[in-house]
């Protein structure tokens, strides 16, 4: 395959970025998208140029580190596929591929295609955990959990924190991410004691960090590589309302 790449190059957070065109030949359709970029970088390094910086780690769709905005879609054209699991066979031979970083006020560009997603960690830090000492595992039947609820919790837990929902949203809203994390714990007995505090802190934190609000546009659901449904955003709204109405202020 032959492809023309239009890649966003930006020296650092402060610098002004611009698109640079690269022509790449002998690309195998079996290459993954990131292997194609590795291949480009090898050639750049050989010719003494600065390689393109992009984020990645597991390369098997589980860590959430990769994430490129490819031809107008976060994680590219395939549904439920992370950038690392995308293959060149999904693209046209001889076509042009435009690659940009996630664009959001809360995700400053570090270099080229790599953005700083600390904001998502900060949201987790504001309440996305259960504060008990775990110790050794309890006896399996001591806390019964319905199959339906454990399935739901697991669906929510599939979120890998990649930020594609933010990238896909016209408001750069992180609500699908927040909703997944809030729901995952709200479904289970272990998460219930702190549910009210958790949802309020996490929602507020997302706002403070500069993510937009949810306009129910539902792009996030379509581009989430793990297929997290917007149903969880409704669940989060429900939890939020419950917390606001029922929770006593302790201060």
């Amino acid at each position: 395959m032959k492809v023309t790449l239009k890649i966003w190059r930006q020296k650092n957070a402060k610098a002004k970025g611009r698109f640079v065109k690269y022509k790449l030949e002998n690309v195998s359709p079996e290459m993954s998208f990131l292997e194609m970029l590795d291949y480009l970088n090898e050639q750049l390094i050989k010719s003494g140029e600065d390689p393109v910086v992009f984020d990645h780690d597991c390369r098997e769709g589980i860590c959430g580190a990769c994430g490129l905005y490819i031809n107008g879609r976060p994680h590219g054209p395939e549904k439920r596929t992370t950038t690392c699991e995308l293959h060149m066979r999904s693209f046209k031979d001889g076509g042009t591929i435009v690659i940009e970083p996630w664009r959001s006020k809360a995700f400053p560009v570090i270099k080229d295609l790599m953005v700083d997603r600390t904001a998502l960690d900060e949201i987790i830090r504001s309440g996305g955990y259960i504060s008990v000492n775990t110790g050794s595992a309890p006896e399996a039947n001591s806390i019964p959990v319905g199959k339906h609820l454990s399935d739901k919790a697991f669906d929510a837990a599939e979120c890998i924190g990649c930020g594609a929902c933010v990238a896909a949203c016209k408001n750069s809203s992180a609500m699908l991410f927040v909703a997944a994390k809030v729901s995952q714990m709200a479904f289970l007995p272990h998460g219930k004691p702190e549910a009210a505090d958790r949802v309020q802190s996490m929602v507020k934190k997302a706002d403070v960090l500069g993510f937009g609000g949810c306009s129910n546009t539902y792009s996030c659901e379509h581009d989430c590589p793990k297929g997290i449904p917007v149903e969880f955003i409704a669940k989060m709204n429900r939890e939020f309302f419950k917390a606001k109405v029922c929770k006593q202020k302790v201060e």
């Binding site: 905005y69 031809n71 107008g72 879609r73 435009v98 940009e100 896909a168 016209k170 546009t217 792009s219």
Partner: peptide
């Protein structure tokens, strides 16, 4: 630069 192609 490329507008969002996502369904919504």
């Amino acid at each position: 630069s490329k507008s969002l192609k996502t369904e919504n």
